[in-house]
Design a binder for these strands. Sequence first.
DNA 1: CGTTCGATTGAGGAAGATCAATTAATGTGG
DNA 2: CCACATTAATTGATCTTCCTCAATCGAACG
Lengths: 250, 250
Amino acid sequence: MTPQAATVERTALPRPATEAPRAAPSSAVLALLQGHLQPQPRMLHAGESVYRAGERFTHLHVVHSGCFKVVSMSADGREKVVAVRFKGDWLGFDGLADGRHDCDAIAMDTGAVLSIRYDELLAAGSREPALMLAFHAALGRELARDRSSLMSLCTLPSDARVAEFLRDWAESLASRGLRTDQITLRMTRAEIGNYLGMTLESVSRALSRLAREEVIRFAERGRREVQIPDVGALERFVERCVAPARATLQ
Amino acid sequence: MTPQAATVERTALPRPATEAPRAAPSSAVLALLQGHLQPQPRMLHAGESVYRAGERFTHLHVVHSGCFKVVSMSADGREKVVAVRFKGDWLGFDGLADGRHDCDAIAMDTGAVLSIRYDELLAAGSREPALMLAFHAALGRELARDRSSLMSLCTLPSDARVAEFLRDWAESLASRGLRTDQITLRMTRAEIGNYLGMTLESVSRALSRLAREEVIRFAERGRREVQIPDVGALERFVERCVAPARATLQ
DNA sequence: CGTTCGATTGAGGAAGATCAATTAATGTGG
DNA sequence: CCACATTAATTGATCTTCCTCAATCGAACG
């Protein structure tokens, strides 16, 4: 997969330049939830699931701490990590469609979620419009993020996808006030590859290349720890991958 | 892009076998909308937009007739068709995140949408829970579809992606009671390629191959008309593409 | 009737998958 | 605590898929 004909009815207008709306969590929402509902905190250890595909959908969840992956399996057995979620993110939207979850949500390390009954959320939301608005906004961001992934998968070469993955992770931490210069990937290369649509070998090579180009650095302890001295460097790296493709089209 | 290590924490459980929930539209929703709101019908010709990126989000829309594409552009100018929508589908969810659309919704042929003010929908929804439930279910299906696309892009070779695209189109028509044996693609090869993450040449080759294998047939008039004698054949074709990859993993 | 745009098809090349071997981390039982 | 077993990661060699470039053909349109 690589850049392809970006000729889809050229619009000459300058655009507002959409990128994934990473400014997600907002303690305002949490405050609203706390105020109107009795969110049940629930602790989970690595590997435990918040919910599993096939279970009845009754609750939505907001990540309180830790990080979680959302895994989907298609009818023919293809399995894929479709999302990685951090503090402030919601989990469980995949149950809205038909009252049954169709993904697994799994803790990647020790963490906690606040669980909210959907029926109570609906009730509270109809009394308190701001709550319903916030809920819908979260849904909208979820859609935007999925589409941003889709875009990355379709238009970026593998190196850039890995770079963007790291940038995204770092930005997620940053927007939540966590330190971003050193991040611990709680996924194997195989999982990252699955998430990004490439093989584990390609992930490994991409990381090596990023390290060689000084865009990232590996900590001494293992190669799961990645140091990101400058997030901007990651962005520039992605830009450099996109630029040549565009140049030829102009 | 091609099948890759599908080793993401193997779960031994038999799964409910999720596939895109194509059973979308439901005239029930339309009836609800008609009953509680004053949906404004709006006619559009090919190329006209329901809304554009950057515009304020005020309305949601339900496709009444025709087909529409949703196009997204990233900050660095990568452009992509992120969705194709038919009768009964909603448009406009991309405005929920922050009150501004970040995609264009464009008519691919003459068609019409019913436009609903979001604030009125909220108000009506809090009086009539069934309406809000239906709205949320539509959002959930939207998410599920995006994830299904993501899965296809990541795990299927290009031929199979084209096959699935056609199957999806045919199924969309079928679930809306339209004839499915003969469909008119209202997209150029370049657009299909953009949507599926491949070049127009690859789309063309894939279609030729599908025709050669008798899975589809071209009508005499032009190559935009595609006959699908048997939707099952398309599914089997996709299966055949997935099977070998899985065989080696077992 | 020529021009233009979209589609098809072929040849060559590059990105990334696959296969395979090695090395580093992690975990386990003695 | 250490030897061993196991799993994860790296790196190289090769092969496949799909992209790129280019030529041709057909359909639509003025």
